[in-house]
């Protein structure tokens, strides 16, 4: 059987018809050198990804800061529409029940299970960021980059924030403030560096569901957020 570069490359991404995938698996069983070659091709992705990650957490140039974080128009509301939940606030929102089942966990379990980050100093550093960093900004603490997305209040009035924590991989997270301490209530890993745990799209859907279950308010404006953070 003649295997082309295109077939081998697409095999790595599981993008071939199942018959071709099977044929390459069979060829792999017969020709061990094929595995070496696939490894070499696959390594390229890891190398390119590692190269790209070098810029994460590096200070943003002054020009880019001005362009990206200039003050919004005064009458506007700061809304982070990364998640569809935000644009659906005025209408009925479907819970992503199937996705929750797929992960085999519910919000209750999430809320009882502290993420690993909470068990070490890193979480204390992240808490400090959540107490002070305005939404839309990023900072580096304890070897991770924390990117704040937006703040909101839960059904019981507690302040919550959505943000991303990133080192070699990234997780989108929601934390709420209770008795002066931030507690992560949902944490979903995203795709980074080709090491897929969950797809970014799935992460978004799961967090939408979490926000709905929390009875989240509309996102706070930056001004409202500043006032609430100063108070708490």
């Amino acid at each position: 059987m003649k295997l082309t570069d295109t077939q081998l490359s697409a095999f790595l991404d599981n993008q071939l018809p199942s018959s071709e995938m099977d044929a390459i698996r069979e060829a792999l069983a017969i020709h061990p050198e094929l595995a070496d070659r696939l490894a070499a091709l696959s390594q390229v992705d890891a190398q390119v990804s590692a190269f790209a990650q070098q810029i994460d957490g590096k200070p943003i140039s002054a020009g880019l800061q001005r362009a990206a974080f200039s003050a919004p128009a005064p009458e506007s509301t700061s809304v982070f529409t990364r998640w569809p939940w935000l644009s659906q606030r005025s209408g009925p929102v479907a819970l992503a029940a199937s996705v929750m089942l797929m992960f085999g966990i519910g919000l209750g379990q999430w809320m009882q299970t502290a993420p690993p980050a909470q068990e070490n100093e890193q979480w204390a550093a992240i808490e400090a960021v959540l107490h002070s960093l305005p939404s839309g900004e990023a900072t580096e603490v304890q070897g991770v980059t924390v990117q704040t997305y937006f703040s909101f209040t839960g059904a019981d009035g507690q302040l919550c924030r959505a943000y991303q924590v990133r080192d070699t991989r990234a997780r989108d997270e929601v934390a709420c403030l209770a008795d002066g301490h931030w507690q992560a209530v949902a944490s979903v890993y995203q795709t980074v560096a080709g090491q897929t745990e969950y797809s970014a799209a799935s992460a978004s859907v799961v967090l939408d569901s979490v926000l709905n279950q929390l009875g989240a308010s509309a996102p706070l404006t930056l001004e409202e957020e500043r006032a609430v953070l100063a108070r708490d």
Binding site: F69, S76, R82
Partner: peptide
């Protein structure tokens, strides 16, 4: 909205 766009 510009602010929404900036946030995105």
């Amino acid at each position: 909205k510009k602010s929404v766009l900036q946030a995105e």
